[in-house]
Simulated assay, not measured.
Amino acid sequence: MLSHRREHDVLVLTVHEDPGISGRAGLAGAIMDFVRAFQPAPVLVVIGDAAATPATASAVLRAHRRCGDLDVLFSAVSHDASVRRLLEDNADSGGRGLVVHSRVDAAIASAYGAAA
């Protein structure tokens, strides 16, 4: 369901499948486990096409809210416009904002540049 890699000092997490309503908390927890392990690296969550659902967006938003106290740059990528809108419209405005992109390469460059 979730894979990770480091690219240009950015932790890139890819969600490969929809966690469903009952799997949202588990996915958010798994994202946070990686965030804590690689802290203070910026985090980019890539939402794969098969995972582009409201449940995935909800899990990403939960993880983003939990990152508020960690001072970790957190961003997300989805090719799906409706998922990007869900993320943008529901992101917690306290602390660091959630940056939402449509392209992975641009998101990695942005996160790397912001962290440098």
Rank of each mutant, 00 (worst) to 15 (best):
G29P: 01
R84C: 15
R103T: 09
R66P: 04
V100M: 07
S93Q: 08
H79R: 11
D80Y: 03
S102F: 08
A114R: 15
A55Y: 11
S93D: 11
L27Y: 03
F34E: 15
R85Q: 14
D33V: 15
V83P: 01
T56V: 08
V12T: 03
V104T: 10
P19Y: 05
L11K: 04
Q39L: 12
T14K: 04
G113D: 13
R66T: 09
A59R: 07
V72G: 02
G20I: 00
V12R: 00
A50H: 06
R103A: 14
R66S: 13
A51W: 07
T53S: 15
V99R: 02
I21C: 00
V72F: 01
D18R: 00
L27M: 08
R103F: 11
V15H: 03
A116H: 10
D80L: 11
A25L: 09
A51P: 09
A111L: 06
E7I: 10
Q39W: 12
L98N: 10
A37N: 07
S93N: 00
A81L: 13
L98A: 09
A91G: 07
G94I: 07
A41P: 04
A41G: 07
A115G: 05
R6G: 05
G29K: 08
S22N: 08
R24S: 12
S102D: 14
A52S: 15
L61V: 07
V10M: 04
N90H: 13
G48R: 04
G68Q: 11
A116S: 14
G29A: 15
L61Y: 03
I47T: 08
G48Y: 08
A25K: 04
V83D: 03
V104Y: 07
A116Y: 10
T53R: 02
L11F: 06
G97N: 00
A114D: 13
I47R: 02
G48E: 11
G29N: 14
G97A: 08
D92F: 01
A106K: 07
S22W: 04
V43W: 01
A109Q: 14
V72W: 01
V45N: 02
A52R: 05
H79A: 15
S102A: 13
A25R: 04
V10T: 02
A28Y: 07
G94K: 06
A25W: 02
R24L: 05
G97M: 00
I31R: 11
T56R: 02
R66Q: 13
P19I: 10
I31N: 13
S93W: 03
D69H: 07
H16M: 05
G23S: 09
A111R: 05
P42G: 12
D80T: 12
I108M: 01
G113M: 07
A41H: 12
A55M: 09
V83G: 04
T53Q: 08
A109P: 02
V99N: 05
H64K: 14
I31G: 12
G26A: 13
R6L: 15
Q39F: 12
I31P: 14
A106R: 12
N90M: 09
S110A: 13
V104C: 01
S102Q: 07
R24V: 15
Y112N: 13
D33P: 09
I47Q: 10
G94C: 07
G29M: 06
V83C: 05
V77S: 03
N90I: 06
N90Y: 10
A59L: 05
H8A: 11
P42L: 11
R6S: 11
P54K: 03
A52C: 09
D89C: 08
S110W: 15
D9A: 10
G29T: 12
T14F: 02
